[in-house]
């Protein structure tokens, strides 16, 4: 547990998502954007190549003060003084990895059910991954566990951090957070973006909004998910006016449409915001 510290945005490498850009530039962009946990995952590289990448990322993450783990390879992790490893359900068993790495290094475990989560917690995992929440190209063929498992993990896994993973983007992050996640992991949404830094900022903004909404409301139960301009957002707002105010739009010249019908601004205060509502806020932009 020595090297473990809490985090919010966990980013995993995925070089196949950024042909033409180096691993270093993409991961550094993610770190600049606020990623505060980084994992090297490369199922295709030779061990020697993996070692070189791990060395580079170790140096980079250290300069940002961010924990760094290597997927699947305790020997590589030790060789570059990584903070630990991340293991799948079919990788080296946790106890074996622990005996190699010692008590201080981080061991994270991927879990796909609450049973696996309990087991990992019992065996001394330092954190777990919970997913894939949505279908993802990173793990083709694996059925998504949906946000239902996120909600279970949020209710039960209290002694170690869990991070939601799998197909998470800034647009659907709200749903995952509303289900109870407080940490998010992204791969393709970040490293496959032309601007990984901006995507990280947006994901962190989602996490921030959700924690503010929880703090403002009576607790997670008071949160409802609504879709605003195409983004799922957990909110404690009871009226359209409150939602607009939370988004910083109440005083702006914007037009609101809820569930397909325009709501005149004078009625925002008296218009209740039902769970699942679809809201559009539009305004004038330059155009011909």
């Amino acid at each position: 547990m020595g090297r473990m510290k809490d985090f919010r945005l966990y980013v995993i490498t995925g070089e196949n998502y950024h042909p033409g850009r180096t691993l270093r530039e993409v991961m550094e962009a993610a770190l600049r954007g606020g990623a505060d946990f980084l994992q090297l995952r490369d199922k295709n590289a030779s061990k020697r190549e993996l070692l070189e990448k791990a060395k580079m990322l170790r140096e980079l993450t250290r300069s940002y003060g961010v924990p760094f783990v290597v997927n699947d390879h305790p020997d590589v992790a030790l060789a570059v003084d990584a903070d630990g490893v991340h293991l799948g359900q079919d990788d080296l068993p946790l106890a074996a990895a622990r005996s190699l790495l010692g008590p201080d290094r981080i061991i994270g475990i991927s879990t796909h059910s609450i049973e696996q989560a309990r087991e990992a917690q019992r065996q001394g995992a330092d954190y777990i991954g919970v997913g894939p929440v949505f279908p993802t190209g990173t793990k083709p063929g694996r059925a998504a566990v949906t946000t239902a498992y996120v909600a279970q993990a949020a209710a039960e896994i209290r002694s170690i951090p869990f991070v939601a993973i799998g197909g998470i983007t800034p647009d659907n992050a709200g749903e995952v957070l509303a289900a109870g996640a407080t940490r998010l992991c992204a791969v393709s949404a970040v490293v496959g973006s032309p601007d990984p830094e901006a995507v990280c900022r947006r994901l962190l903004a989602r996490i921030e909004e959700c924690s503010e909404a929880k703090a403002a409301g009576a607790g997670p139960d008071a949160l409802r998910t609504v879709t605003v301009n195409g983004q799922a957002k957990p909110t404690s707002a009871g009226s359209l006016w409150e939602l607009a105010a939370q988004l910083g739009l109440a005083e702006k010249r914007v037009v609101a449409e809820m569930n397909g019908a325009i709501v005149p601004k004078a009625e925002w205060r008296t218009t209740a915001l039902p769970a699942g509502a679809t809201v559009e806020f539009v305004h004038f932009v330059g155009g011909g």
Binding site: P170, R202, A205, V228, N229, G230, Q231, L247, G248, L249, K252, V254, V255, E280, F281, V282, H283, F284, V285, G286, G287, G288
Partner: peptide, 13 residues
């Protein structure tokens, strides 16, 4: 003339 578009919620300013 103008266009009508969604407000960018990530940059309402």
């Amino acid at each position: 003339t103008f266009a009508v578009r969604r407000v960018n919620l990530d940059a309402v300013e």
